[in-house]
């Protein structure tokens, strides 16, 4: 058994392969499900000086 044929090295290879394919799978799935469209609203809303629930439209009784 050489340095490159230890069981743990094959374990590493299979792990890396799993991640590469997993990444591609989720990337494609995310693109198809529209996860990367229309998600920029929060960044504009966070700039408003928001007030807690009940404060916006007249005072809480």
């Amino acid at each position: 058994m050489g340095d490159y044929t230890y069981a743990s090295v094959f374990w590493m290879y299979s792990l890396m392969a799993l991640f590469v394919f997993g990444t591609l799978y989720f990337l494609v799935k995310a693109l198809r499900s529209g996860a990367v469209r229309d998600d920029e609203a929060p960044k504009y809303r966070m700039l408003e000086d928001d007030v807690p629930e009940g404060g916006h439209h007249g005072e809480k009784a």
Binding site: F26, K29, A30, S33, A35
Partner: peptide, 8 residues
């Protein structure tokens, strides 16, 4: 499913 993560 993925899209819902940031709402749920």
């Amino acid at each position: 499913m993925i899209k819902k993560i940031d709402k749920n």
